[in-house]
Amino acid sequence: MKPLYRSFAMFIKQIFKDSMLFMVCIAVVLTAFFIRFGIPAAEKFLCSYFNKEAILLNYYLLCDLFLALMTPYMFCFASALMMLTEYDENIASFLAVTPVGKKGYVISRLIFPAGIAFIVSVIILSIFSLTEWSVWMIIIICLLTSVSSVIITLFLFSFSHNRVEGMALGKLSGILMLGLPVPFFLTNKFQYLFSFLPSFWIAKLCISENGIYLLLALATSVIWISIIYKKFSRKMI
């Protein structure tokens, strides 16, 4: 296990050396503050301006969901960009012929960042959420957003040739978040057009707390991961 931790520590060090990637991580905290304090302030202003009881209030849950997905999304995005840099430098294949091994490399670049993102997003959601959450719900939702964010790392690493392409694709991969608002705005059967997105099922789960949605969120994530993993694995050598 030691070589694995060493190589992960180096990975983190590289992320901190890279100011752009560091900014990505800072963005998480800034967004959290914006949601926690900016949104209620805006709600107060809008309500008094339009003389209504609630305008944004109905979407507080959506804001919380966004908060829960934001952290893993950003972390996995940063991880993918760092992997692309390591790919350019041939580090990935070299670490595969050290005691870290190919498996160790994949674990330290895919699973570890998602794991840390899980912990951070649990903390962020507990502190900054706008609505009431049970501990279990926080854990389940953050677990699901973290697992689904692994798709981001796999996708960006497998389909871009360098960092610049990675950045561009990063914007495209925002589509994966698109599933979150769908159940809030589309209540007819057209919403199921988005059923290929794990985020869609995560939002459904939050709204109705039905266990079947948990399974569907997990299943869609796993399907995406296993589809892209083949291409990812081939790029590694």
Binding site: P3, R6, Q14, N90, I91, F94, V97, T98
Partner: peptide
């Protein structure tokens, strides 16, 4: 891999680190 040393055709080094930092890291594995 404890007993195997590999030198690829193309350098596989952390470009942002110094040569000593690279060596310290790789030997730590």
């Amino acid at each position: 891999y404890e007993n195997i040393g590999v030198d690829f055709e193309f350098p596989s080094l952390y470009e942002k680190l110094t040569s000593r930092e690279n060596m310290v890291f790789f030997s730590s594995l």
